[in-house]
Every structure is written in structure tokens, then in C-alpha cells.
Design a protein around this nucleic acid. Structure first.
Length: 652
DNA sequence: AGCACGCCGACT
DNA sequence: GTCGGCGTGCTC
């Protein structure tokens, strides 16, 4: 047989036992079209149904003993699955005991025939490469560039200021830093992948890139494009020209010619969490891809995620310090016992500063998102209810029960209003619009701009305005805000999550970075270590302390975790298998879950990860294969499944 | 998931 | 004797 006459195919199927390559003969009529990376259709179960699949590679001979079936069809001759992306998908899936096909669904957009035809008709035109790029601002001269050239893994703190581009547009300095890094990489004729949490960040990054590069060199892939546009950008990325590819978390899997740099902005942002199975975080995918490709890897943020802190502490990622420590002027502010009239929520010092600042330019007020647990106020006089012990805000826990203090957790089963002596509490749901209304009265002369999740505002001008924004939806202001008020810190801290402190520090830091240099940033109603971390702008130090406490508790990311959900007997068997796979594997639970199922958490060291994943994967296949077994009783027709999820950011 | 194979009970 | 129940196992 001639070389390359056997096609190795990954079949589209959710079944774990089909997550392997199947060999097919290539009939003569497909000899030209059947190239590695094309979409194919293949018969599965002789004469039975036809399945879609990816032609992963062509080999000379098959190891398979039986007779090979033939490829049924080649869907398109255009290869979409690059060999290095296949290697990445396989490794990412294995790490999470998932299907490679599921990763590919995230990695490769669906086909649009029109877009494909237009692409084939077009001449490749990526524009000029940049000449020797300008230095990357903010770091020791040549340090960042040398790291990129050497394929180093780096964690960097971003300059927390807005900067003005040559076009006149204002963006966060981080965007200019990443654009300069991409330009440096492109000047060496190598591609970059830049991953950002959402399109608002992407807009800034794109503006910064447009300042430095031929726009034809920049490809964007995001959910706001039409399917055809997405597919076209993807096809362009498969070409042999070096590019800068920007987009959300799926961009980590993008095809790229001669990859030189993978960069992530704000890896701790919850929007980076992959929702689709098997839920591999793009940070982990980037780490795999870095190792496989030798490209440089950069984590840039105003805060450092605990995950990256761990990588820094084990020496896998290098901390690259900023050359001069620029930091916002953060002023922690306690709640006032007697607030200014007309504004129940803003302490007087911050209120005065805001009034002063708004004469000169925009002022940002950050509030919590609706959906956070409501604060409690006195039912009679509307005075916010505070903890008798420490003065923190009182809230009703989401799980129900007595009100308790956000800060110290003290339960307040009996409460008496210090102002009017009322004893009844009421829930005060304060949304952004209500806050805006309230502030509008306090600042009657000011224009009020509201930006929230539903109607986000991307940017505001440099003229005076009161900008009320829910966290994460803060617009960038031309020239920076003249004052920033972080108003709902207490309420944000209430979220019942292991990561709540880390998240709050990131939300506050990202908002503080929107202030113009020297302008005051008021953190209202929060004290303690977290407030100190913001004030001193030492987020990495805080992450280090947080990691230490997670280590003491054996919580992620100090260890890895996998959740296992199934019928009780299957969970028990899976736990046994996982614990037999490596030393030091322990389990939490099982606890009852929905529909008579149970859920358990397996914890293990990073060194045991591969063995645990392999063991749980084998269990999944066993369960899926021996399905419909009569479980000592009634005939439960439902197919039995073992659900396994690794490194779920929302677990424990 | 589908689908075929196969080894028991009730049928024209 | 055969038709078909669904339990079991495989998919190049």
C-alpha cells in the first residue's frame, strides 16, 4: 500500500469509549481530498449509521486486525484541524478525563460554505510585517522582549493607568502593553494569541493593536461576529502568515503559524471559565500549548490569580516586576455613623472629594450587581442595619436563617435600630439604577451615566459626569476618572464562594486602574487585609497569603480536585479506583445530589493528576459500556452515567 | 447512542 | 418448529 492510504479518524461522539482514533481505508476518489485536518463522514458499525469526524492523520498501515471500512465522504478539502491543535486537544481532554471531540467543538467554529468560498477565492493578503517594534513599556529595558524571544513563562503586573493612543483613543495601559508584546513577536514573523475575558477588553486591545500594526495582521474571533465572519477569521488563521489573533477563551486553541506568544489578560476573571465540557480552563490549555509549542506565555493583570501565584512559587512561571511601581491612590473609608444628608451610602470624606472631582471630569461609582444578597435596613427609618459587634453590614444569608454580619459572621437574631429603636428589618435591594437616582439627587448639576450588565457603556468622555457602573461594566474614561468610589464592597464580599475575596480584590483593582494618576479611589466600608492589599497595591502578596491558607486547608489550587456524580454504587467504585491510582488521593463526601445521585469530590496533588484522570476515565468507560444493568430492584431504564468534572472553579 | 447478535418463552 | 423478547457487546 502507498504511504498515507489509511485515514485515522476521530468520530464525533459523546461516548467515552469512542474517544479514540478509528482507521479507515481511503478510496481512490478521495486520494486528493483526504488530507490531515479535514472534516469527514465515516460509517460506524458496518452498514449502519454515518458519523461525522476529523481526519486526524494519514498513515501507511493500520494496526487494526479487522477489515477497514472506507471513508464515506470528505466534507471539505480545507484542513481545519492543525496537527498541533490536535495534540493540544488530546492533551487538554486527557488532563480533564474528557473527550477530545468536545475540545474540538470549542476550538473549531462551524463551517460556513459562503465564507469558505470567499476565502478560497481571495488572495492571501496579510499586509506587511512591522519593522523593528518599539520597546514594550513599563518593564526593565529588554526584559519582556527577551522573555518572549526565549519562550519564557511570565507573570506581570500591568501599569494601572489609562493611556492615550496615537489615534487619540484612551485604553488601559495593559492593552498597549500586550499590543507592544504582539508587535515585538510579529516583527520576528511569529504569531501571537491574546486571550481576554470579554469583548469590552477586546475593543481596547484592538484599538491598541491598530495603533501599532497593519489591521490585516490582526484577526479577531468573538461571539458578536456572525458565524460566517468567525469562520472566515478562523480560515485566515490557518494560513502561513504570522498573525495576532485576539479573542475570548476559545482563542487559546486557534490555529497559528509559527506561534511565538500566548498572552492572557486577567486570567482570574470568571468569564475565562470554560462552560462547555470538559471545562478546561484556558489557563491550563495555555500551559499545555506553551509546553508543546515552546512559545512564550504571559499572564498579565492588575491582580494575580491564586493559580498563577502557585505557578510562580513553584518556579514554573517567572515574576517579571514592573520597572517603577505606579499605584492608584486608594483611600480606605469606614462607613460613617451619621452620613451626609441626601446620601445614605457615601461617607462624608468621599462625598466631598467626589463633589470636588466632578467639577473637573468624570467620577466613577462602582456598585454591586443586582442579585447579590440584599442589605438589610431598619424597616422604620431605613437606616442600614449594622453588626453590633463590628459595625459590618447585616445581610440575610442566601441559605436562609438569621441575618448575619458580612465581615465577622456574627448572627444577629435580635436587632435594635440605634437611631429609632425599631426592631424590624427590611431587605433593601439597591440596584445600579436606584443608586444612580439617589446620586443624581446628591449631585444635582451632574450628568449621570449608567452602565450595567444589560446596557454596558464602553467609554465616556473627559467632561464632568457621574458614572454609576456595576462591577465589571465600568466604562473607560478619556483621561481617566477624577475620582473613583468603590461603594458596595461589603455587599460584594457576601457572595458565598471560596474565591470571593480574590474576586473582590480584582473588581476593585480593575476599577481603581481607571482613575487618572493621582486621583483618589475610595474603598468604602471595607477594612482588614484585603483592603490593605488594595491600598498598598500588593495583590501578588495577597495571593501568596491566600495560597498559603488554601494549602493549609488542602483546597484548590494548592491541590487539584475532581467532582464525581453518579448513582451511589458507581460513585463508591469510582472513588476506590481514584484512590488506588496514586498516593495521597482523598475524597470529600459523597453527599446526596439531584435525582437520587451522589456527588463526591476527589482531591489529589498535581503529580497524581494524570493517574487520577486515567483511572476516572476508565471508570467512565466501564459505566458507559455496562449500561442498563439491573440495579437490584426495579428496571431503571435510564442509562447510568458517571459525570466527572476536573478543576471546577465553582466547587467546593 | 444505535444496532446486531443471541439465547429463552409463546405462537401460527 | 419459528418469531421476537430485550440483555449484552461493539463500533475501524
Amino acid at each position: 500500500m502507498a504511504g498515507g492510504s489509511v485515514a485515522r479518524v476521530l468520530v464525533d461522539s459523546p461516548l467515552p469509549q469512542l474517544d479514540q482514533l478509528f482507521d479507515y481505508a481511503v478510496p481512490e476518489r478521495f486520494r486528493e481530498a483526504a488530507r490531515a485536518g479535514v472534516r469527514v463522514r465515516v460509517p460506524l458499525r458496518s452498514g449502519g449509521r454515518i458519523a461525522n469526524g476529523w481526519l486526524v492523520e494519514l498513515v501507511g498501515t493500520s494496526e487494526y486486525e479487522g477489515r477497514l471500512s472506507e471513508l464515506e465522504d470528505v466534507v471539505s478539502e480545507v484542513p481545519l484541524l492543525m496537527p498541533e491543535v490536535w495534540a493540544l486537544a488530546r492533551a487538554a481532554a486527557d488532563r480533564a478525563a474528557g473527550n477530545a471531540g468536545d475540545i474540538l467543538r470549542v476550538a473549531i467554529p462551524s463551517r460556513y460554505v459562503r465564507a469558505e468560498r470567499a476565502w478560497r477565492a481571495a488572495e492571501p493578503d496579510a499586509g506587511e510585517l512591522p519593522a523593528r517594534a518599539a520597546p514594550i513599556p513599563g518593564y526593565e529595558s529588554g526584559r519582556f522582549e527577551a522573555g518572549i524571544d526565549a519562550g519564557e513563562r511570565m507573570s506581570l503586573a500591568a501599569d494601572p493607568r489609562p493611556v492615550r493612543l496615537g489615534s487619540g483613543e484612551w485604553v488601559g495601559a495593559w492593552a498597549a502593553i500586550l499590543a507592544a508584546a504582539a508587535a515585538h513577536t510579529l516583527a520576528a514573523d511569529r504569531s501571537s494569541l491574546i486571550i481576554v475575558p470579554d469583548y469590552r477588553d477586546q475593543e481596547q486591545l484592538q484599538a491598541a493593536l491598530a495603533d501599532l500594526l497593519d489591521p490585516r495582521r490582526v484577526l479577531r474571533t468573538d461571539a458578536r461576529q456572525t458565524g460566517g465572519e468567525r469562520f472566515r477569521a478562523f480560515l485566515d488563521a490557518t494560513g502561513s502568515d504570522a498573525r495576532v489573533i485576539i479573542g475570548n477563551r476559545s482563542t487559546v486553541y486557534a490555529p497559528a503559524a509559527r506561534l511565538g506568544l500566548i498572552a492572557m489578560w486577567d486570567d482570574g476573571d470568571g468569564l475565562q471559565n470554560e462552560q462547555l465540557a470538559p471545562g478546561v480552563h484556558p489557563r491550563d490549555a495555555a500551559l499545555i500549548r506553551q509546553e508543546q509549542s515552546g512559545a512564550a506565555l504571559v499572564f498579565l493583570g492588575h491582580t494575580r490569580s491564586v493559580e498563577v501565584e502557585r505557578l510562580v512559587e513553584i518556579g514554573w512561571v517567572h515574576d517579571v516586576p514592573a520597572v517603577k511601581q505606579v499605584k492608584p491612590r486608594v483611600i480606605p473609608t469606614e462607613h460613617q455613623a451619621a452620613p451626609e444628608p441626601g446620601s445614605a451610602r457615601i461617607p462624608s470624606s468621599a462625598w466631598r472629594a467626589a463633589q470636588q472631582a466632578i467639577r473637573e471630569g468624570p467620577v466613577l461609582v462602582q456598585v454591586a450587581r443586582p442579585g447579590h444578597a440584599p442589605l438589610l435596613t431598619c424597616d422604620r427609618c431605613r437606616e442600614p442595619a449594622r453588626c453590633a459587634a463590628c459595625g459590618g453590614a447585616l445581610v440575610v444569608p442566601r441559605s436562609g436563617g438569621d441575618p448575619r454580619c458580612v465581615l465577622c459572621g456574627t448572627s444577629a437574631s435580635t436587632w435594635k435600630c440605634p437611631v429609632c429603636e425599631g426592631t424590624k428589618l427590611r431587605a433593601a435591594t439597591v440596584g445600579a439604577s436606584r443608586t444612580a437616582e439617589e446620586l443624581g439627587r446628591a449631585f444635582p448639576a451632574a450628568r449621570v451615566i449608567l452602565s450595567d450588565g444589560e446596557r454596558p457603556v464602553l467609554r465616556v468622555g473627559g467632561e464632568p459626569a457621574l458614572v454609576v457602573a456595576t462591577r465589571g461594566a465600568e466604562p473607560i474614561a478619556d483621561g481617566g476618572y477624577r475620582a473613583v468610589l468603590l461603594l458596595d464592597g461589603e455587599r460584594m464580599l457576601l457572595r458565598e464562594s471560596l474565591r470571593v475575596a480574590e474576586d473582590c480584590l480584582r473588581w476593585w483593582s480593575n476599577a481603581a486602574a481607571l482613575a487618572s494618576p493621582g486621583s483618589p479611589v475610595y474603598l468604602v466600608g471595607v477594612a482588614g487585609a484585603l483592603a490593605n492589599a488594595l491600598t498598598s497595591w500588593r495583590q501578588a502578596e495577597w495571593a501568596s497569603g491566600e495560597l498559603a491558607s488554601r494549602r493549609a486547608l488542602r483546597f484548590p489550587p494548592a491541590v487539584r480536585v475532581a467532582s464525581v456524580t453518579a448513582a451511589p454504587a458507581l460513585v463508591a467504585r469510582a472513588l476506590t479506583a481514584a484512590q488506588a491510582a496514586a498516593d495521597g488521593v482523598d475524597a470529600l463526601g459523597p453527599v446526596p445530589a439531584d435525582e437520587g445521585l451522589e456527588r463526591a469530590i476527589v482531591r489529589f496533588d498535581y503529580s497524581a493528576g494524570a493517574a487520577v484522570a486515567r483511572a476516572l476515565r476508565a471508570e467512565m468507560i466501564t459505566v458507559s459500556t455496562e449500561r442498563r444493568r439491573p440495579v437490584t430492584g426495579r428496571p431503571p431504564k435510564r442509562p447510568s452515567v458517571l459525570r466527572v468534572r476536573f478543576d471546577d472553579p465553582d466547587v467546593p
